[in-house]
Design a protein around this nucleic acid. Structure first.
Length: 978
RNA sequence: GCAGGGGUAGCGAAGCCUGGUCAAACGCGCAGGUUUGAGGUACCUGUCCCUUAGGGGUUCGGGGGUUCAAAUCCCCUCCCCUGCACCA
């Protein structure tokens, strides 16, 4: 069959669009809208809206393709399906893209040029568009249009009539209502919080704002800053040294300073602190009052003494490895447990030059007096773990930075997870696990004001603007408090009542719910909705996309009735979503018609709750959990979501897709190169929901073959039907279909219908494709090879249209095309196959005995081939000797009577052994013994002969003269070659 | 470390919940054959090892156990992947 997928797909996409095939209306009948679930017969299905910062890739494609199969299946089962789509634009990524393009960032411009070239051929137009992208609205406007095109090109049966973006004023009002709910319930709170911050921009920064923020993520680390009092100062002056391991305070032997770096003496919250110059800025951002008193070089401190928070008097020593840009610029030294400290002391002892420079300080003597203090016991290490690990890794001096870092990491891990604080050294913390001691020590010291908290990034990071990324403390950060009284409990109840597929992920939800605590939900910048009661804050993007499914149900009517954003007040939504207040009063207030308000409410009541949400597994820890929490917070129990299905991510040729690797496969290109149906069949059929799909060109090409075979076969089946369609087929089926080739074929097909339906009901889409497409194609191919014209007609009348309908969820374009062909033959019903009724399996045609007889034929052929290959001789003829009727009877009786293979005792040794071996096979599939071997094989002898390329004779054991006749067993005839 | 998932023939990947029909679906790769003027395509056959009569042997990360019977159930062990938040 000539099949040009581009033409065919475009044709049906246009037809669906023109017919508004997938844009369900809400019945405006009040009674129906208020009717119970069962009567509503609706299926409100959602997949998260895409983020509009560029083109869609195959990952979106996989999730939406799976979603589309589900939506189409439900639609064909007669449910009123609403599957809408919209666009997410909240947050900073779109802003970042525009900023980069405006700043002339070459990589970004190149990437967006490539995106745009997917749709534009004119280079001048490309340049013009890219220039326009300096404005974020232009990015959103352009790509949201293209996303719709991409979706349509994939044939997704979305309702495109309810589109919106999260920046629309109506949406803003809706989110304001949501946050009003949170506030009212006490779920929304303010507190201080550390954030990554760029002083140059004067703003908090996210991953997108940081150079290489996506490949090397930046975190804020919480250091304990020890205050060690400097000796011989007029006023109390503290050296500030920071650590991630506060428990090692018991082992401090000295403090290191970088002699060549600049330090400042400053007033910090009324005390005098000594820190590096950059550290003071950080302290200021972290909410401390700071004022510089005096600047100095590190060298001026060398040889002085200070007193640690625990009262130990320790010297200050020079060390070049101290980085003043990291933390406070002083490092206290715990040589017993810190490889860097150990090696620094070693180096210094050998560093004659430095020792000479500070001759007046007599560093040599100070060094001699330093004795490492061991304070943690850990398995596999002795007194001084740092020394041991350095020796083991053969580190010679401090220039081997990588090795030392590795040693530090390894030792830290060992001590943190396996270490215990030593008796006699660690005071009240003796005996504690390091894991516990770490926090306890720090809390105690901070409580006694002997230490403070200091935040630092885990790596030096630069903002895209060129400024340094630091950690700042936000004092008035808005949080959602998932542990607020009652909330988590309600969310759990919602989750418990939901269906999660695949079920293994339920556990993960439970775990996430367990650790969800406080979560910042607003930022100072980005696109989105402002907090109504604190407009300098913009609601963050994961927080404004948790209940928008409800918005889909109402936006169409809101627009139709001409509501302006200003009319969408809190009372409006209270009425629409919660039924609070009376329509008349609210309508009067917002100057609207009461029945318009009621119409919106009906839409919500008809469609809600969300029956199924389908998305990628990665969203469990955030979006999907928030989705449940938010519904539990804002809606009545009857409107809580019902089910979630999940699929894993997609990789490309074995590698994770990422922009930096440049291996992102764009959905648009896939549609262009392979066509929608092929991608759909491939992505749905190649991997279970629970497995990663590896997108491989080679494999999708192989799928092309299978899809083509289906199209050819279905066309052939349609051809086989006489014009005028089904003429008295069913009565003939009753008469003829029980046995023989037709019986087998119908039995297999009806099984296929039954199994496919079951797969779809259970979200096993891969199995559905395997069953309905691959397996069934093989069966029909085999059938067409062997059947005569009359048999073909019979089967085709019975199966062709139903097979096409069965596959239309996954390959809708091809199936519409075939359906149209069948309509011309008078075979298929009018209208789209996409809107036709789902085929029902005719269980009475499922006939295990017929299928068993088919297996018998296949086994005889396989046996003959095997024997032939062992004989290594040409086969001229095959004699098939069928077991005697007496044997068959005996076998049946024994299998029915015996409970285990050991009990089987037949009249001949051969039969006994045979039945014992096959015992469980026969027991579980008794149809195998119901087959009339002789009739079956005799009827198939011509086919067997053709297949084997030789003559075939079938005879009965009783009548056979062959000496091998006794080998004949029920279901396994003797085969004699010559 | 905590939590989750996984290790199956040359490769990818089913099967495991509900033990026997499992030498283990399906696809790729590879080999042979048919078609065609090489090639490619399409189709057929084969693809753990041995076997001149349909048989036998050894397999499902490693070790142990339960059972008449284990890829499937239980215990131990090794290895791999993902998540651990304020980011869409």
């Amino acid at each position: 069959m000539d099949y040009d997928f581009k033409t065919v797909e475009a044709k049906w996409q246009a037809a669906w669009r023109d017919a508004k095939a997938f844009e369900p209306e809400t019945p405006q009948d009040e009674v129906r809208a208020r009717a119970g679930e069962a009567e509503k017969n609706k299926f409100f299905f959602t997949v998260p809206y895409p983020y509009v910062s560029g083109n869609l890739h195959v990952g979106h494609g996989r999730t939406y393709a799976n979603g589309d199969v589900i939506a189409r299946f439900h639609r064909m089962r007669g449910e009123r399906v609403l599957w809408p789509m919209a666009f997410h634009i909240t947050g900073t990524p779109v802003l970042a893209v525009s900023a980069k393009i405006a700043a002339g960032d070459a990589a970004t411009i190149a990437m967006y040029e490539d995106y745009v070239r997917c749709y534009e051929t004119d280079e001048a137009r490309v340049r013009e568009l890219i220039a326009s992208f300096a404005k974020p609205e232009a990015v959103v406007a352009y790509f949201s249009k293209k996303i719709v095109l991409d979706f349509q090109r994939m044939g997704f049966s979305l309702d495109y009539s309810r589109q919106f973006t999260t920046g629309d004023p109506e949406y803003n009002r809706f989110i304001e209502w949501q946050f009003g709910c949170y506030k009212q319930k006490g779920y929304l709170k303010q507190a201080s919080y550390p954030v990554l911050y760029c002083p140059r921009c004067g703003n908090a920064v996210g991953e997108d704002d940081i150079k290489e923020g996506d490949t090397a993520p930046v975190d804020a680390l919480k250091f304990a800053a020890f205050k060690s009092k400097l000796e011989n100062e007029k006023e109390n002056t503290f050296i500030i040294s920071c650590t991630l391991r506060p428990e090692t305070v018991f082992g401090v032997t000295n403090v290191f300073v970088n002699p060549l770096a600049k330090y400042v003496k400053a007033s910090v919250d009324g005390e005098i602190w000594l820190v590096s110059e950059p550290a003071l800025e950080k302290l200021r951002l972290q909410g401390h009052r700071t004022e510089v008193k005096e600047k100095m070089l590190g060298a001026s401190l060398v040889g002085k003494f200070c007193v640690t928070p625990l009262g130990a008097r320790v010297p200050i020593l020079p060390a070049a490895f101290v980085d003043v840009n990291n933390a406070s610029g002083f490092v206290h030294s715990v040589p017993a447990h810190a490889p860097w400290d150990w090696i620094a002391l070693e180096d210094l002892r050998k560093d004659e030059k430095t020792l000479a420079r500070y001759a007046d300080k007599n560093l040599k003597k100070l060094l001699d007096e330093i004795k490492p203090i061991s304070l943690i016991s850990v398995e596999g290490y002795g007194e001084f773990p740092a020394q041991e690990i350095l020796a083991r890794m053969k580190v010679a001096n401090s220039r081997e930075r990588q090795k030392i870092d590795k040693a530090t990491q390894e030792l830290y891990k060992a001590e943190f997870y396996g270490g215990k604080m030593k008796q006699g050294v660690a005071g009240e913390f003796a005996g504690l696990n390091v894991t516990k001691a770490k926090d306890a020590v720090a809390e105690k010291l901070v409580g006694e004001r002997k230490a403070a908290w200091f935040y630092e990034t885990n790596r030096p990071a630069e903002c895209r603007c060129g400024g340094n990324v630091l950690v700042a403390i936000m004092n008035d950060q808005w949080f959602l408090d998932f542990n607020a009284p009652g909330w988590k409990q309600a969310a759990r109840e919602c989750l418990d009542a939901m269906t999660i597929y695949p079920p293994v992920y339920r556990k993960q939800f439970n775990d996430v719910f367990e650790w969800l605590d406080k979560r910042p939900c607003a930022r100072r910048r980005g696109l989105g909705t402002r907090l109504p009661f604190a407009p300098e804050w913009i609601i963050e993007s994961l927080s404004d996309s948790t209940i928008y499914m409800a918005f889909y149900t109402v936006i169409k009517r809101i627009r139709e009735k001409g509501f302006a954003a200003a009319q969408l007040t809190l009372e409006f939504f209270d009425f629409v979503f919660l039924g609070k207040g009376d329509a008349g009063g609210i309508a009067k207030k917002i100057k609207a018609k009461p029945w318009d308000l009621e119409a919106v409410r009906y839409d919500f009541l008809f469609w809600y709750p969300n029956d199924l949400r389908h998305t990628a597994v990665a969203h469990i820890t955030n979006h999907l959990s928030f989705f449940i929490f938010a519904h539990a917070a804002c809606f009545e129990r009857e409107h809580w979501p019902r089910a979630i299905s999940l699929n894993e991510m997609i990789t490309a040729e074995g590698a994770k897709m990422s922009k930096s690797k440049g291996n992102v496969v764009l959905l648009n290109n896939v549609a262009r190169d392979y066509g929608a149906d092929l991608f759909r069949v491939y992505s749905v059929g190649a991997a279970d929901f629970g497995s990663t799909l590896d997108f491989r060109k080679h494999d999708i090409e192989a799928t092309r073959k299978s899809l083509g075979r289906f199209i050819d076969l279905a066309a052939k089946l349609i051809e086989a039907v006489k014009n005028g369609g089904n003429n008295g087929g069913s009565s003939r089926i009753d008469a003829e279909a029980k046995t023989g080739l037709v019986g087998v074929t119908l039995s297999r097909f009806e099984s296929c219908v039954r199994d496919s339906t079951r797969c779809l009901e259970e979200f096993r889409l891969r199995d559905y494709v395997q069953t309905a497409l691959y397996k069934q194609t093989n069966f029909f191919e085999d059938f067409l090879r062997r059947a005569n014209e009359s048999e073909k007609r019979l089967v085709a009348e019975q199966c062709a249209c139903r097979w096409i309908a069965l596959l239309s969820p996954v390959a809708p374009h091809a199936c519409e095309e075939l359906w149209e062909k069948a309509q011309k033959k008078g075979l298929a019903s009018r209208g789209f196959v996409s809107l036709s009724r789902w085929p029902t399996a005719q269980e009475k045609l499922i006939n295990p005995a017929a299928e068993a007889s088919e297996d018998l034929v296949a086994n005889v052929i396989a046996d003959s081939r095997k024997i032939a290959s062992l004989l290594k001789k040409k086969t001229a003829s095959v004699t098939i000797i069928v077991a005697s009727a007496a044997k068959a009877q005996e076998a049946k009786r024994l299998i029915a009577a015996c409970e285990s293979p050991q009990q089987v005792k037949a009249s001949s040794d051969g039969l006994t052994a045979f039945l014992q071996k096959k015992f469980f096979e026969f027991q579980q599939n008794p149809a195998l013994l119901e087959v009339n071997d002789f009739e079956t094989l005799d009827a198939a002898s011509e086919f067997i002969g053709k297949t084997l390329g030789c003559s075939v004779r079938v005879e009965r054991e009783e009548e056979s003269k062959s000496e091998r006749a006794a080998r004949a067993m029920p279901g396994k005839p003797a085969v004699v070659l010559s």
